[in-house]
Amino acid sequence: MNLFHKLSNWLRLKRQEANVLCVGLDNSGKSTIINQLKPSSAQTQDIVPTIGFCVEKFSTSSLTFTVFDMSGQGRYRSLWEHYYRDAHAIIFVIDSGDKVRIVVAKEELDMLLHHSDVKHRRIPILFFANKSDLQDSLSSVKVSQMMGLDNIKNKPWHICASNALTGEGLQEGVDWLQDQIRSLKS
């Protein structure tokens, strides 16, 4: 049995599983991104503000992702930290059209990075500078500068501009995340 297990792993017959935590401020598009990543048969039309959190699953060529889609509303943000321990990767969604609240996103990110369950782990973080279709949206470079992402030294991170409504930029980010998780697991 064990041998078969190893063999199937080696042949990548069975997909590996990864727990991913999806966080970000309210109205940044977390649920929309997760919805877009699901197979088209499982997608929903209406996205409503998430209460508490939702667990979603989707798979790529080699990994099965279990995503904890956290609510971004102020009163639910205190829930995030309870899921840091079991997460293999973090997706942080930023509304690149909301310039005023970039500081709030930065504050939440800093709190995340300084949390004892995250601080010393080499956990990959994927940033989506979402809503890139908006006219006055910030570029991913500008977002990473305003968020101070250059200061993250001990974790692999990647930022990509995305448009969750059309799915633009999402695949690039998920591919990066998949490579990171596989390189960490092997």
């Binding site: 401020l25 309210d26 109205n27 102020g74 909301d98 005023v100 609240r101 500081v103 709030v104």
Partner: peptide
């Protein structure tokens, strides 16, 4: 202000606008 409940909007004597959260 926007979607943030705890926003503090101030304008200054010199015509400036300060937003704090």
């Amino acid at each position: 202000y926007g979607r943030e409940d705890g926003s503090l909007i101030m304008t200054t004597k010199g015509g400036g606008l300060i937003i704090k959260i």
